[in-house]
């Protein structure tokens, strides 16, 4: 049977919509389920057969985790949040600063051992973090930096740096070198040429590198669960473990804390995303 061009187009359009819907469902439904579960009583969360349509939505789990009674399921949310924020922000800033210097050096200068060093950075990404946890634990124990913000910042800077350098290197490579030279001829010191011309053009790339580094540090669990002990340095992902006890898991509380953890990350991504739109370098030089 011949299918007309118009029918075929509509058919394809529907296929695309259904495909997109299925893909988005796979991504969003678990997240949505966490958000929903944080507002539902434990009975409903654990009900068999599952209750698909929420019957009773309330803030009980939130109230409980923020309460002062550990028996009610209270956890030191503020301490965890504070630790997470300090550790993720500081490690991201340090990774960006070093990453910018490193990425710029890799993009602009040639030096001995450059390729080997770059390969080494990439190879370091192939080692699963958890495999390092035992040696790290021993080294950290000797140095006395277990359960400190400093220790966590250090490990996250190390974890993020190779990828940050790699990303930023790519963005600086897109900025034509002639722009720096033109700026120097226009009277800039090399430092001014960097800050006034090259940095603004690579800004979007640096912002995206920053988001990646922040989210990695914010969400990291494996190493943090080994190297933190108390409210002195425990981060939100490790805090989720507080809801598991010998015989039960407080799913509702866990979901509520997970939501508290997701919101800042989402907000940050939302705020920075307009900087992620690349393409600013277009037009400066002949394309």
């Amino acid at each position: 049977m011949m299918v007309s061009h118009g029918t075929r187009k509509i058919y394809l359009k529907w296929c695309r919509w259904i495909g997109t819907f299925l893909a988005m469902s796979a991504i969003c439904i678990p997240g949505l389920w966490i958000v929903l579960s944080s507002f539902r009583p434990n009975v409903e969360i654990l009900a068999k057969p599952a209750v698909w349509i929420p019957q009773d939505l309330n803030f009980d789990h939130y109230a409980a985790i923020f309460s002062s009674d550990p028996g009610q399921g209270a956890v030191p949310v503020w301490s965890y949040f504070q630790n997470s924020l300090i550790i993720a922000t500081t490690s991201t800033l340090i990774a960006l600063l070093i990453g910018m210097a490193g990425g710029y050096a890799f993009a602009r200068y040639s030096f001995k051992g450059k390729d080997t060093m770059f390969l080494g950075f990439m190879l370091s990404r192939t080692v699963p973090g958890i495999a390092l946890s035992l040696p790290l634990f021993m080294v950290y124990a000797r140095l006395g930096i277990i359960d400190t913000d400093f220790g966590m910042i250090l490990i996250y800077v190390a974890l993020n740096l190779p990828f940050t350098i790699w990303l930023i290197d790519g963005f600086f490579r897109q900025v034509p070198q002639e722009l720096n030279q033109a700026a120097q001829i226009d009277g800039c010191t090399p430092w001014q040429a960097f800050w006034l011309v090259e940095f603004p053009l690579a800004k979007s790339g640096i912002a995206s590198a920053g988001i990646f580094a922040f989210l990695t540090s914010w969400n990291e669990f494996a190493l943090a669960s080994q190297l933190t002990r108390s409210t002195a340095s425990k981060t939100l992902p490790v805090g989720l473990l507080d809801f598991t006890s010998e015989f039960t898991i407080n799913w509702g509380g866990m979901c509520a804390l997970a939501v508290i953890m997701i919101v800042p990350a989402l907000l940050l991504t939302f705020i920075v995303q307009k900087h992620l739109v690349a393409g600013l370098t277009f037009g400066g030089v002949k394309g």
Partner: peptide, 20 residues
């Protein structure tokens, strides 16, 4: 002397205008 102290101007092959 660095380029900035030579009081020269240069027009580049690919223009090198500041895109931002």
């Amino acid at each position: 002397l660095p380029p900035r102290d030579r009081n020269v101007s240069m027009v580049f092959q690919n223009y090198a205008l500041y895109p931002h």
